[in-house]
Amino acid sequence: MILNFLAFCTLVATLAALPRLIIGPTAADRIIAAQLAGTGTVATLIVLGTADKTPALFDAALVFATLAAVSGLAFVALQRTRL
């Protein structure tokens, strides 16, 4: 029960950065918001996995973490090619 509530809070934290993604104003702000949302989803999966007693969700969290690293790098690297 507490864990379900904590999962809800983590989701709130994931979504709370989104206004920054929309209002910007610079590209850097948007990348920061996306990165935080990525961390938030990993955290949500971990808390859900603890609540649901299904360790398969931890594997999913690992995949999310790897891909968050890759897409964060893509954002920064491809951003700079226009310079």
């Binding site: 989104l18 590209a27 918001a33 989803t41 954002f75």
Partner: peptide
């Protein structure tokens, strides 16, 4: 950047 970052977050959710 906003639309692609938004799309990536949509994908995660």
């Amino acid at each position: 950047v906003a639309s692609i970052a938004g799309f990536v977050v949509t994908g995660l959710l």
